[in-house]
Computed example of a mutant assay.
Amino acid sequence: MELRDVRGLTDAVRSAGVDVVPYEITHVAPGTHLGIPSSTVTLIVDLCDGLDLTGPGLPRRTTFTCGIGELHREAFTVHHDGTQIGVQLDLTPGAVRRLFGVPVGELPSMLELDRIDAGFTRRLRDAVGEVPHPARRRAAFDVLVDQMSGRLAGPVGADPDAVRTWRQILRTHGTVTVSQLVEQSGWSARRLTGVFTAEFGMGPKQAARLVRFDTARRRLESGRSPGDVAADLGFADQAHLTREFTAFTGLPPTRFLRVRASEFAAE
């Protein structure tokens, strides 16, 4: 029997835009894998020797114990020695505001989370590090509940026009045009771009590209053909999809899928 019922708050944390994925990868060949751009912010709690990264905004190969960064438009390379153990938290921009009181647009490419909130970082790392792998998801949720219980009213401080624009981009899977967003907002393109960039670290056009790419990637990984994905998401043709995919990952779609399938080969 639980000492307290957190199901309601846990559901609220999920609805606020947080997903928690513990991982435990062992006995694979040392190598690299791609940290792919997406429409969520990735927070990694590493429980080994640190998350070893190269990529945008990092002057050199850098190790993080509990790393978080902006919404990325370029892939990172994760270097590993055959073992990776930790917890990945996927946070919407609104969840970043609720958890830490800052907009995604103020985050650098990558930094240690304790520079934003040392107390939360310590509680989260201790909680997931003190329990076995099957219990880490719940342990992380408990810490999130405590952090967010008084902040679930909404993304306090965010410009409402920026938030509405972001939600519209998500609803349309990034297929909405900037002119449509401007018309729906009732503001000038300059004003909307300004408040949106301050909140999300990129303009509406770049955000729509990111969300459309993210949607395309997920559909390709589910088995859809590049031609069908290109048609569904309003790309001019399959070649256009390939160019966008290469811009975000460094790889065309078919090669990307092959690389992803072979990233964690048995030792």
Rank of each mutant, 00 (worst) to 15 (best):
V6S: 09
V6L: 10
R7Q: 02
V13T: 00
S15D: 07
E24K: 11
I25C: 02
H33P: 11
H33D: 05
G35H: 00
P37I: 09
S39M: 04
T40V: 13
V41I: 01
V45G: 07
L51V: 07
D52I: 00
D52Q: 06
T63W: 07
T63S: 15
F64E: 11
G69I: 04
L71V: 01
H72Y: 02
A75K: 00
T77C: 13
H80P: 02
G82C: 04
D90N: 04
L91Q: 05
L91H: 06
T92N: 03
R98L: 11
L107D: 13
L107Q: 04
P108Y: 02
P108M: 04
M110W: 05
T121F: 12
A127S: 11
P132A: 05
P132S: 10
P132W: 03
P134K: 08
R136N: 01
R136Q: 00
F141S: 09
D142F: 12
L144Q: 08
D146E: 14
D146V: 04
Q147S: 11
M148Q: 03
L152V: 04
V156W: 12
D159G: 13
P160Q: 09
I169G: 11
G174C: 12
T175D: 09
S179E: 14
Q180P: 11
G186Y: 13
R190L: 08
G194V: 10
V195D: 14
V195T: 09
T197L: 11
E199C: 08
P204I: 01
R209L: 14
L210V: 08
D214V: 02
S222M: 14
S225V: 15
D228Q: 13
L233C: 12
F235T: 03
D237Q: 10
T242A: 15
F245V: 10
T246H: 09
T249N: 01
T254R: 11
T254W: 03
R255H: 13
R255W: 07
R255S: 12
F256C: 10
L257F: 07
A265M: 06
